[in-house]
């Protein structure tokens, strides 16, 4: 396990380095100079040169690259062109919305999907088994922002029981109000996410229900519940955990879109704003932070999967498919 952790951590760092380099290269491929975003339209060459010096785009590319990586290592993401604030603190403030939104939606989706997916497989011969499966099939085809629009229409505009969007200015000072404004976005994401989760839980359960080890356990006299608890759960959880990792990452990204539907001041709306205003430090910063989050989630899912399934640990060295 120690060797695996070491290898997986070095892969994580290499991925992050590559992602950061990719970001740098892509954003430098831009036709214009980022300094143009800083000055007004009729700026003199002197003003442009000053702007260039200010953001460092007059330096040779390798030097710019070194300072970008150096900044990353010191957790310094630069200064926003528009707000003149450090990008790092702007992102930190936005994470206070995006992280709770993601985690709440994820938890709700898991709580819904586990029993429903299990039922859809276990009771596939009753009328509601196929029905649950069909609803999940439909759910994976629905764009998440559309669900958001429909929920806002019903609960905020027609029934007027929940806010249509926005977030309290004082953030989490009043947790009740903050949670109320997160309720609809959370449900929106959870609905769409649970649909795809249900399908994975269902197929993992189908595999376990048809397995020889479950039949053997039952033949040895264990009750269905006991056999499922002792043998089924652990076997079914292996594919589900790796999917959970992917789904958590997807939720985090789904938040980007859903934040726009509900005009929440999160990471997603910051990115959209950055793109609209050509605020490159903000774009870079948000993309680095979200990529880091996705990579970390993948890391955690891989490690947990190994803890749950001893078979994966057995051939650490040569585990090539």
């Amino acid at each position: 396990m120690g060797r695996y952790l070491l290898r997986r951590t070095s892969f994580l760092l290499a991925s992050l380095l590559l992602a950061a380099s990719l970001l740098f290269v892509l954003l430098r491929l831009l036709p214009g100079d980022p300094a143009n975003a800083l000055v007004s339209v009729g700026a003199t060459p002197e003003q442009l040169a000053a702007a260039r010096r200010q953001i460092g785009s007059d330096l040779p590319l390798p030097e710019q690259f070194a300072s970008w990586l150096g900044g990353l290592a010191r957790l310094d993401l630069g200064t926003s062109f528009v707000s003149k604030l450090p990008v790092g603190s702007e992102i930190a403030a936005r994470l206070a919305v995006t992280v709770p939104l993601t985690l709440l939606a994820f938890t709700l989706a898991v709580v819904v999907a586990l029993p429903v997916g299990f039922l859809a497989a276990w009771r596939s011969d009753r009328w509601y088994g196929p029905l649950l499966n069909g609803v999940a099939q439909l759910g994976v085809a629905v764009p998440v922002f559309w669900i958001g629009i429909l929920l806002v229409t019903v609960f905020a505009l027609r029934l007027r029981v929940l806010p249509a969007g926005g977030f309290p200015r004082e953030d989490w000072a009043e947790p009740g109000r903050a949670l109320t404004s997160l309720l609809l976005p959370v449900v929106t994401i959870a609905l769409v996410m649970s649909a795809s989760l249900i399908r994975y839980v269902r197929s993992a359960t189908v595999d376990v229900l048809g397995s020889d080890f479950l039949r053997t356990a039952r033949a040895m006299g264990e009750s269905f519940g006991g056999a499922m608890w002792r043998h089924g759960l652990r076997n079914a959880s292996v594919p589900v955990i790796s999917i959970l990792g992917i789904e958590l990452a997807t939720t985090f990204l789904g938040a980007v879109v859903v934040e726009s539907v509900f005009t929440l001041p999160g990471l997603g709306t910051l990115l959209i704003k950055g793109i609209a205003e050509h605020d490159y430090p903000v774009i870079q910063g948000v993309l680095v932070v979200s990529t880091l989050a996705v990579l970390l989630i993948g890391f955690a899912a891989d490690v947990v999967q190994r803890l749950v399934d001893p078979r994966l640990r057995a051939h650490v060295g040569g585990g090539r498919p």
Partner: peptide, 11 residues
Amino acid sequence: AFPTLLLAMLV
């Protein structure tokens, strides 16, 4: 690992 939508937004 690089998320689809982010990659698309970057492009």
